[in-house]
């Protein structure tokens, strides 16, 4: 329902941040962001406003959460696959 895209803050002037989204830059307003933001932080953009500061460690935390789900629910035959996948995650990070 609401298109949201994460980006990295490059610079900040007053309530406006220049944010990098996969290589393109766009001004994003900081009027309603939940926490103070500094350059280097990640934010979630919706209609040109930052609606959330994304803590840097949270991506790894989410991946960990998914891994746990897999671990908890791993049945016999898929263990290998899950292991494989965990290996890929470890390799990627």
């Amino acid at each position: 329902m609401c298109l949201g895209v994460p980006g990295r803050v490059i610079s900040i002037h007053d309530y406006t941040a220049v944010v990098d989204f996969w290589g393109v830059r766009k001004d994003v307003r900081l009027d309603i962001v939940d926490e103070p933001v500094v350059p280097g932080d990640y934010i979630l953009n919706h209609v040109g406003f930052a609606i959330r500061r994304i803590a840097p460690e949270s991506v790894a935390e989410t991946l960990e959460l998914y891994e746990m789900l897999l671990r908890e629910n791993a049945g016999g035959e898929d263990d290998l696959m899950a292991l494989d996948v965990r290996g890929e995650i470890a390799g990627a990070s």
Binding site: V5, F21, W22
Partner: peptide, 12 residues
Amino acid sequence: TAAVRAVGELLG
């Protein structure tokens, strides 16, 4: 390109 992918994601 990365730029096209990014703008596509931003603007839906």
